[in-house]
Nucleic acid binder design. Structure first.
Lengths: 107, 107
DNA sequence: GGTCTGTTTTACTATTTTACCAATAAGGCA
DNA sequence: TGCCTTATTGGTAAAATAGTAAAACAGACC
């Protein structure tokens, strides 16, 4: 593994890592509905606005979302559509695990 | 966001998080070539075997890989093919950033 | 049983991430 | 200008993660 290869993996891992938090994933899914302001995102995910803002900056840094100002509001939108394709795929795996958990709980 | 929704996002984020480490991503890409033993993986990624073992357990826990014993060796293989599709997609984004970095270095 | 090989687990330290709260922008409007 | 709304940044404590080395484990083979 040469330096270029290491850097490639590091950048790539950064994208996955950015998506690897429930709140950030929730934001990404919400943004599928279209451009949203921070205030709408806060309302949807239900946590401190400062917390949301920081998570948004993580997503922005890796290029998953981008923002623009609209008056007082900052509008965020997705810039990596393929992220959603994969998210859908993972969904299948996750649903299985959720069902398994429910079976255990019911039993 | 109800409890089920939260749990769904948590599990889903776990998959991304597992892929969000350069070493683990390197392992995943290596396993595209087919089933490999821990010793081969160690040689490929170039770090302590105990470290590789721990990363493998993370990947296994989330269902990205699975293992089987073959004599003394533990063989690992991918179980989430779609992970690769997304990885390829992210690749495009990453390559752009890498190129940008190189431009800066050259300039 | 004893020993070798291949792998996992444990114990430890250093670093990173996270959530919360307070403080600080930055734009709109009286 | 002053004040309101919206969002970001800084600080801090708690929790999670990563890497290393040593110990433990599991199967193969004598």
């Amino acid at each position: 593994m040469n330096p270029y290869e290491n850097e490639r993996l590091r950048l790539k891992a950064e994208v996955f890592k950015a998506m690897g938090h429930p709140l950030r994933l929730g934001i990404i899914e919400f943004l599928q509905l279209g451009e949203k302001c921070v205030c709408e995102i806060v309302e949807h995910v239900g946590t401190e606005i400062s917390n949301v803002s920081k998570h948004l900056s993580v997503l922005k840094k890796t290029g998953i979302v981008t923002d623009r100002r609209d008056g007082l509001k900052m509008m965020y939108r997705l810039t990596m559509p393929c992220a959603l394709d994969f998210a859908r795929c993972v969904e299948g795996v996750v649903i299985k695990r959720l069902d398994a958990q429910r079976s255990v709980m019911v039993a």
